[in-house]
Amino acid sequence: MKATQQISGAGIGLRTQHYQTILESRPDVPWFEVLTDNYMGAGGLPLYHLEQVRDIYPISFHGVGLSLGSADPVNLKYLTKLKQLIERYQPEHVSDHLAWVSLNNHYAHELLPFPYTQEALSLISEKINTVQDYLGRALIVENPSTYLDFNYSEMPEWQFIQEIVNKTGCDLLMDINNIYVSAMNHNFNPLEYIANIPCQHVKEIHLAGYEDKGTHLYDTHGYRIHKEVWSLYEKALTYFKATPTLIEWDTDIPDFSVLLEEADKAQLYLNKYEQQEQYA
């Protein structure tokens, strides 16, 4: 197995539909992101395919099962399995979400929102610290996209993220599509959000396509990236620098060539930013 490598450039989310294409044609993709929760089984083809991909490409791990925002304690069985996968596949990044997916060990398997309160801050910080201590590495935490707001939140989301970083030293995954979706749904300025993120902690960026439902934007991950999100991404790079960027696609998964086109486009933005920096 390859040694851990530094991730850079525009990667693509690994999906089962593309195993064959990837393993046969070995496309020029700098890294793949693996949905950790799809590899929790004891054996079989999924783990075999993952091993084959890992032998060729650097990978990152991305999951939802830590349920960081839940009032439940961290599921130790899940955490143990996650650690085993990390030790076996040596991902460069390990990330999860600022959301909850379970309560009383009942799993909704969906990223659910919570109020940005001091209570939530203490709870989530403690859980992130537990996870980081157990894994022996910094966890990367992703900002959510949300469709409702709690009227008793005590701070905006970006301040909550600042506080989480201060209390845990965790790193951040900034999903530009999520920022845009939430900004449109809750009427805030996405640039103000980005400007308030501790940029030195941003280790990864996600890009995906949303769906305009008329009454709200929905984070479908089933479309090409919208031009408004590309525009926001370009501006975000001036804050976050040439951060490794991932193309996410989870529903109505298209031919691999479509994802390659989106990744190439993201790479152009990354190259453009680096060139501008060089001549600045």
Partner: peptide, 29 residues
């Protein structure tokens, strides 16, 4: 009672976005 007023979506519609996602995900599984 604990959600911010949304002029485009009723409370039930806001929660239904999540309800539909949860059920949609489990049905797909």
């Amino acid at each position: 009672k604990h959600l911010t007023y949304n002029e485009r979506l009723s409370v039930d519609e806001q929660i239904s976005i999540y309800r539909d996602s949860v059920f949609g995900g489990l049905i797909m599984a």
